[in-house]
């Protein structure tokens, strides 16, 4: 979720910049960010589900088998 917020914030910055100089580029970039966020959410949530099924917990610290 925080990731979504961050992406949103970046997109906002782009749009503001685009509006500042009255160009379409900002919105175009926001579109790309949006597409990227969508793809990332899809994959990420699928991963979250798999992890939940394996480890039965959403604790990120549970995934420490690559320790050392």
């Amino acid at each position: 979720m925080s990731l979504e917020v961050m992406l949103n914030a970046a997109g906002l910055a782009f749009v503001v910049a685009g509006a500042r100089w009255h160009q379409a580029d900002g919105q175009v970039v926001f579109l790309f960010i949006l597409a990227m966020a969508a793809a990332e959410v899809a994959v990420g949530l699928a991963l979250v589900r798999q992890i939940y099924e394996r480890f039965r917990s959403l604790d990120a610290d549970a995934l420490s088998e690559m320790k050392g």
Binding site: A35, A38, A39, E40, A42, V43, L45, A46, L47, R49
Partner: peptide, 17 residues
Amino acid sequence: LASMLLLAGLVGAYHLG
């Protein structure tokens, strides 16, 4: 590229899920 990214995301999500 964005469309290809979405395709990749689709396939990935399908496979992972």
